[in-house]
Simulated assay, not measured.
Amino acid sequence: MRARFLALSFLFAFVAAPAAAEVKSVRLYAERGFGFFVGDLVNARLEIVADSASRLQSASLPRPGALDYRLDLRDIRVREEPVGDGLTRWNIDLVYQIFYVALDVRDLQIPPFALRFLHEGETETVRAPAWAIGVSPLREVLPQRRDDPTDYMRPDRGVAPSDAATPAIRAGAFVALALGALALVAHDRGWPPFHRRRARVFAAAARRIAILTKRGDEAARRAAMLALHRAIDDAAGRRIFAEDIDAFVAGHAEFAVAKERLIRFFASSRALFFGVADAGADLPLGEILSLARSLAAQERSAR
């Protein structure tokens, strides 16, 4: 931090009697002393070294705000750190802003301010020094004389020709991609104009069975069996019984992977609805839902 403030440095030493001089040194560092323009921020740091028993009175610190019509104090921050030998250093960071519109290069005075330290009931006043910075104008006041008045005006900068074709091609490509993605979503969701496609009977059955699974009783299992039977019948376009499974799979090759599970489903259905005993034919409600979802997935991939 200290390396940034090399342009200006002020040192005030206090040489009064040791009992009264608790403040040992005051140094002011500024980032630079020249090259400022209206609106610039000016950073400075005031370093005060004093006896560790001393306390800086915060009420004596300058308050941010307008100092005059040319200068504002924007910010002030205080950091306290021990430096050894019973001494403490107060680092006071100051940020000013310039509002002076200079017509030529000149110095701008930064006003001093006083700080108070309290030590064993006694108050000592420390004065931060005044200092100056060089401010410069943004433009010349009197330009060089020219015979032709138009010479005082600079021509407008030419506008570089732009390529209008490339952005249009890119925009068209992105629109085409967006429309393609929208068409895929519409087909998957059955939105117009795809809403008249063949119904997904197994997807509807799977949703119905998922609701029945929450009940989990025997009546729910019977209703789930019936829902899946109706979906198989709708997919085949006719009533399907256990002996029709081979013909059903032959006509709907997408369901071939579930053939063994369909055989077990029909065996469980016979046991449930017709009392035909068949070892291992008791199909739980969860497996019925799993079969319905598997058939729904094959139904979706086939369309």
Score class of each variant (00 low, 15 high):
residue 195 H to N: 14
residue 246 D to V: 10
residue 202 F to L: 06
residue 260 E to R: 14
residue 245 I to H: 03
residue 251 G to D: 14
residue 234 D to V: 12
residue 216 G to N: 12
residue 232 I to V: 15
residue 197 R to D: 02
residue 196 R to P: 00
residue 228 L to V: 05
residue 268 S to L: 05
residue 253 A to W: 00
residue 262 L to W: 04
residue 218 E to H: 08
residue 268 S to A: 13
residue 195 H to D: 15
residue 211 I to N: 07
residue 253 A to G: 03
residue 212 L to P: 11
residue 221 R to A: 05
residue 262 L to P: 01
residue 237 G to T: 05
residue 199 A to M: 03
residue 215 R to T: 13
residue 253 A to M: 09
residue 242 A to L: 13
residue 259 K to Q: 12
residue 210 A to H: 05
residue 229 H to A: 06
residue 275 G to E: 11
residue 242 A to T: 02
residue 192 P to D: 05
residue 239 R to A: 12
residue 254 E to H: 12
residue 193 P to C: 03
residue 249 V to Y: 12
residue 259 K to H: 09
residue 230 R to A: 15
residue 214 K to W: 01
residue 203 A to E: 13
residue 239 R to E: 09
residue 244 D to V: 03
residue 245 I to K: 01
residue 245 I to D: 02
residue 207 R to G: 09
residue 222 R to M: 07
residue 239 R to I: 10
residue 201 V to I: 04
residue 276 V to G: 07
residue 208 R to T: 07
residue 207 R to C: 01
residue 270 R to C: 08
residue 211 I to C: 00
residue 232 I to S: 02
residue 196 R to L: 12
residue 256 A to I: 04
residue 193 P to A: 12
residue 231 A to Y: 05
residue 210 A to K: 03
residue 270 R to P: 01
residue 243 E to V: 06
residue 257 V to P: 11
residue 261 R to V: 04
residue 265 F to A: 04
residue 219 A to I: 08
residue 205 A to P: 07
residue 228 L to H: 08
residue 255 F to I: 15
residue 277 A to Y: 12
residue 272 L to G: 03
residue 208 R to I: 00
residue 263 I to K: 07
residue 238 R to H: 02
residue 244 D to K: 00
residue 260 E to C: 00
residue 236 A to N: 14
residue 207 R to H: 15
residue 249 V to A: 15
residue 224 A to E: 02
residue 260 E to I: 12
residue 255 F to S: 09
residue 214 K to N: 04
residue 274 F to Q: 11
residue 263 I to C: 04
residue 267 A to H: 03
residue 210 A to Q: 11
residue 249 V to T: 13
residue 195 H to S: 14
residue 229 H to S: 12
residue 223 A to E: 15
residue 219 A to D: 08
residue 276 V to S: 13
residue 235 A to D: 05
residue 209 I to T: 09
residue 194 F to K: 07
residue 271 A to D: 02
residue 275 G to W: 07
residue 271 A to F: 03
residue 217 D to P: 13
residue 196 R to Q: 13
residue 220 A to E: 09
residue 252 H to L: 13
residue 262 L to R: 03
residue 231 A to W: 03
residue 216 G to E: 00
residue 216 G to L: 03
residue 262 L to K: 03
residue 219 A to S: 10
residue 237 G to R: 10
residue 229 H to K: 10
residue 260 E to S: 10
residue 253 A to T: 06
residue 206 A to K: 10
residue 226 L to G: 10
residue 276 V to R: 08
residue 224 A to Q: 04
residue 198 R to S: 08
residue 212 L to R: 05
residue 277 A to M: 09
residue 219 A to M: 11
